[in-house]
């Protein structure tokens, strides 16, 4: 009996040492992919650092120094903007979602900057030529008193009254598309953890160094909202993409335009994936990586003239969310060198 027990134990030991853990091929592939991504991002980070060292960030407004909007650089940036807008439109509409562009400038009152002077007409014609549903709020904003709708003199972003004004301006767009639904859905396993770039489930006070403290609250999905978006979805989803005009710094969540719209339309989901600083390049990458998985039925993109100039390569290397290197085109390189030689 003892011998039998010993034999069995030996046999088990031999079998056990010969055994290997069952390997999930998907996990192996994922690990390899992560490793590759990490290596690539490390390489990218080194390249970005090198580029930032070689080419210091050039102020956007200097792009108009020579020929205003007629310079070759600005024309190249316009083309880049057009391509990215077209790409975003295509990807949004392929999913069956409605794509809407809203021009919201930070310029209140009579003064107008070169960004708007040259950028706004271009954006308008580009959207028209691409058949994008387009709303230009710049005239309505310009007609307002900056002291009422913004936080001047400390900052040019929306005041509480300004956010209500913005919500009033955006409301017709929401109303117009009530009922539009996309059939396209993602599986739970496909969805990333977040749909926006904010750290998920945080509540903190920020002030942007301007002594204008505000409470930033993000939901579990990294969006500037007080509640989480539920799946499978039971409501129509509106997704806002854009920059600080929609993100609305220096206001608590409860006072920003998207929260106001949410309270006016409780039967739809208004999602705010806007970022403090960004341009179309960032909006496209955000859409592809995260935002599309929120299954929006309507995508409202906020844009303005700075989204064109922000595509200059030095700006991208300093500010882009992708953290990938942006090499200068020959035109950009020439312009950069000439500008700094002066």
């Amino acid at each position: 009996m003892k011998k039998l027990l010993l034999l069995s134990l030996s046999a088990f030991a031999i079998w056990a040492t010969g055994c290997k853990d069952e390997v999930d091929p998907k996990a192996v592939a994922k690990a390899a992919e992560t490793k590759q991504l990490l290596a690539a991002s490390k390489k990218d980070a080194i390249e970005v650092e090198k580029l930032n060292h070689d080419y210091k960030e050039m102020p956007d407004n200097r792009l108009f120094d020579n020929d205003g909007a007629n310079g070759p650089v600005y024309r190249e940036l316009q083309q880049r903007y057009k391509d990215q807008l077209g790409k975003l439109k295509k990807e949004v509409e392929e999913r069956g979602s409605k794509f809407v562009v809203v021009l919201i400038t930070p310029e209140v009152g009579r003064e107008i900057s070169n960004f708007s002077r040259y950028g706004n007409p271009f954006i308008r014609t580009t959207c028209q030529s691409m058949g994008i549903e387009f709303y230009d709020l710049s005239s309505a904003i310009a007609a307002q008193d900056p002291k009422v709708i913004t936080q001047v003199p400390r900052d040019g972003h929306w005041s509480k009254k300004g956010a209500i004004f913005l919500a009033d301006q955006l409301e017709p767009i929401i109303k117009k598309h009530l009922g539009h639904k996309t059939p396209d859905k993602f599986k739970d396993t496909e969805r990333p953890e977040t749909f926006g770039d904010l750290a998920p489930s945080t509540e903190e006070i920020l002030d942007g160094g301007k002594d204008l403290p505000y409470k930033l609250k993000s939901n579990a999905q990294g969006l500037r909202m007080d509640h989480d978006v539920k799946f499978p979805k039971s409501k129509q989803h509106y997704l806002f993409l854009g920059g600080s005009q929609i993100y609305s710094p220096f206001l608590d969540n409860e006072f920003i335009a998207t929260t106001i719209l949410q309270s006016r339309y409780p039967d739809v989901e208004i999602m705010n994936a806007a970022m403090y600083a960004g341009c179309t390049d960032d909006f496209v990458s955000m859409w592809e990586e995260k935002a599309k998985y929120s299954e929006p039925d309507v995508v409202i993109l906020q844009t303005n003239g700075t989204d064109i100039t922000d595509l200059f390569f030095t700006n991208r290397n300093h500010l882009a969310r992708s953290k990938k290197p942006y090499y200068p085109s020959p035109v950009e390189e020439k312009y950069f060198m000439e500008s700094y030689r002066k």
């Binding site: 903190e204 006070i205 002030d207 002594d211 204008l212 403290p213 505000y214 409470k215 409860e254």
Partner: peptide, 12 residues
């Protein structure tokens, strides 16, 4: 920052 927030947003 939380202190600054409380004094700045006292109305809310």
């Amino acid at each position: 920052k939380v202190v600054n927030y409380c004094y700045a947003s006292y109305e809310d």
